[in-house]
């Protein structure tokens, strides 16, 4: 019997299904999710980097994927977009967008879906734009490809989009090359590009990490506003909890390739269930108060996927670690709509 099956049974016997499988009414609307990822595993050779990740995002919802660098957040997103590059590949699981299974689709069909039904915004906006093409054209290209517009009509729409993401003098800025724009401006262009075909899902991978704090706040506000206008579902990857507080409806915390906790943003901040989540919150509080009496960091680093400990991957860094942590903890209900994968997490009071 595989770990995956064990886990599902464990979940069933615990009586509380995780929000990621069948979202309870209070966490996500009881409509069909825009994207649902089920049992996703990604890796190279015989090393799994992402293990058995399940997620779902409802229309208009923002799900934040949180965790330290190297815990598999970005790979989960790239796998959802079908953008994994050799030697990393999809090993198991399914990804379905509006009910349509994406795993197993060939590149040609994926290209028809990407940009039209789902779009992605990357971390480094300046490097993510073609340096020798005018930005307006790069935005327009999505419209030419997916909506069959002529270049002139597409450019007209591109200027409107650039205007909508808050670029002043959009007509003349559309003629600029990426090196003539600031990082924040480039990220606005990337957002305009992602919005071009009104996708049902936008995946933003550390989209504000490379920007300074002021610009970051502007971009977050813009994304939130645009999302409310369009009703797009959004997966927002970040390691920054202040960003999470700003933008998330729901949160999924990842550690070493697995989701260790999910829940509504307020619940996660109010009563984090997993020791790792609590550690992250502590780091934040201490960063805010700046009066660190005790060590505010979680000791150690995320283990490399090849050197991951058996059972709970966090046990080597966990203050509560005990013998039973050598067996894998199953995700179970912690509070309404909140699931935690830890042997020590009882239902919250």
């Amino acid at each position: 019997m595989t770990v995956d099956v064990l886990e599902r049974q464990g979940v069933g016997s615990a009586g509380a299904l995780p929000a990621t499988r069948t979202p309870p009414a209070d966490t996500a609307p009881a409509v069909e999710p825009v994207l649902s990822i089920d049992g996703l595993s990604v890796g190279t050779g015989n090393v799994d980097i992402v293990i058995d990740v399940s997620l779902a995002v409802a229309p208009g919802e923002t799900l934040c994927l949180v965790g330290e660098s190297g815990c598999g957040k970005s790979l989960t997103c790239l796998a959802a977009m079908g953008l994994l590059a050799d030697p990393v590949r999809l090993k198991a699981g399914s990804v379905s967008l509006q009910g349509r299974e994406l795993t197993g689709l060939d590149e040609k069909h994926l290209r028809q879906i990407r940009g039209r039904d789902m779009a992605m915004i990357f971390q480094d906006p300046a490097a993510s734009l073609n340096p020798v093409q005018r930005v307006g054209r790069q935005v327009a290209e999505a419209l030419v490809v997916h909506e069959g517009l002529g270049m002139r009509a597409a450019m007209h729409r591109a200027v409107e989009l650039l205007d909508r993401v808050g670029i002043v003098n959009a007509t003349s800025r559309a003629e600029a090359y990426p090196h003539q724009l600031s990082g924040g401006m480039c990220q606005r262009v990337m957002i305009a590009m992602a919005l071009a075909c009104r996708p049902r899902l936008i995946i933003a991978d550390e989209s504000t990490t490379a920007l300074d704090v002021t610009t970051q706040a502007q971009i977050l506000k813009l994304m939130k506003t645009l999302q409310q206008e369009t009703g797009t579902a959004m997966i927002f990857v970040t390691h920054d909890l202040s960003v999470v507080a700003e933008i998330a409806d729901r949160v999924a915390v990842m550690y070493s390739g697995r989701i260790v906790e999910t829940g509504l943003v307020d619940d996660i901040f109010d009563h984090p269930g997993h020791p790792y989540t609590r550690g992250l919150m502590d780091c934040r509080l201490h960063a805010l108060s700046a009066t660190s009496e005790r060590l505010a960091a979680i000791a150690g680093t995320v283990p490399r996927p090849a050197a991951r400990p058996s059972g709970c991957a966090f046990r080597t860094r966990c203050p509560k670690a005990a013998e039973r942590c050598e067996t894998l903890p199953l995700p179970r209900g912690f509070a309404a709509g909140q699931t935690v994968a830890c042997h020590f997490s009882g239902p919250a009071q």
Partner: peptide, 26 residues
């Protein structure tokens, strides 16, 4: 292997177009 080629893929640009329009000019 540049990030902007991944952007083109993420945008759904067909393969030939991404080579002629993005890779070759660079």
């Amino acid at each position: 292997h540049q990030p902007f080629m991944r952007t083109a893929r993420a945008k759904g640009v067909p393969f030939r177009r991404s080579i002629l329009g993005h890779a070759l000019p660079n």
